[in-house]
Write a protein that binds this DNA or RNA. Structure first.
Lengths: 110, 110
DNA sequence: CTGATTAGCAACCGGAAGGTTGCATGAAAT
DNA sequence: ATTTCATGCAACCTTCCGGTTGCTAATCAG
């Protein structure tokens, strides 16, 4: 995500910003590739709602979609998680570094 | 974030899921502690809008708030970024592990 | 003191998000 | 051939979100 503009980063984080979707990701992470009904099993929402959530995850690039017969299978796309993770640690540490403190000092001088 | 429930994780990512807020974070990361007007300078939105965004970031624990005279200063809270980063890399790699195990299983079938 | 600057509070608005229901379609099973 | 199962499509509803405006309170500079 280093050279990715803010727009797609925001879409990615927004996709992660929902408890239901985090739950789906957890399931995918533990159980692997699954169909829509399988992913929605036990959840208190309709199948359509699950499908919409998966669509959001797909739009953010967090999952991959495959058709298999009459089913549609979803699986995690781990590289994207790694990129997002990198971006976060970079922003965090950049501000912690000496350079950050130096800039802060200089620019606050009268 | 290891033992943090989905709710606060979702709030955190949701806070990151907006281009304006990502921009504010970038500013804070590069220029350090700043007031509301300073952070909103040059942005095409009202001061109130900026204040609301900062409130969201505060609610997610991504920034810290300090009063100084008539100003209110905001600064990044880097530890939270590190936690979020860890969570992401963990979910990503866990699924890669699952994928590896699945591949083994498949390849060992007669 | 006066005026300018920084911020908070509250009401309001339009659009997007999360959810539902109903109906249609295509593949699997019997 | 019929039935069942997994999805897709579309309309609709309600709540939340990003944004605005107007007004008030506090603090700093002259």
């Amino acid at each position: 995500m280093s050279r990715v503009e803010n727009g797609s980063a925001a879409r990615l984080f927004a996709a992660l910003g929902d408890t239901t979707r985090l739950g789906l990701i957890e399931r995918l992470s533990q159980r692997g590739e699954r169909s829509i009904v399988q992913l929605g099993d036990g959840l208190p929402i309709s199948r359509q709602a699950v499908a919409k959530h998966l669509d959001v995850l797909l739009g953010a690039g967090l999952v991959r979609r495959t058709k298999s017969g009459r089913e549609v299978l979803f699986a995690l796309q781990p590289e994207v998680f790694a990129e997002a993770s990198d971006w976060l640690s970079k922003v965090g540490s950049q501000w912690e570094g000496t350079l950050g403190r130096f800039r802060d000092f200089v620019e606050n001088q009268p």
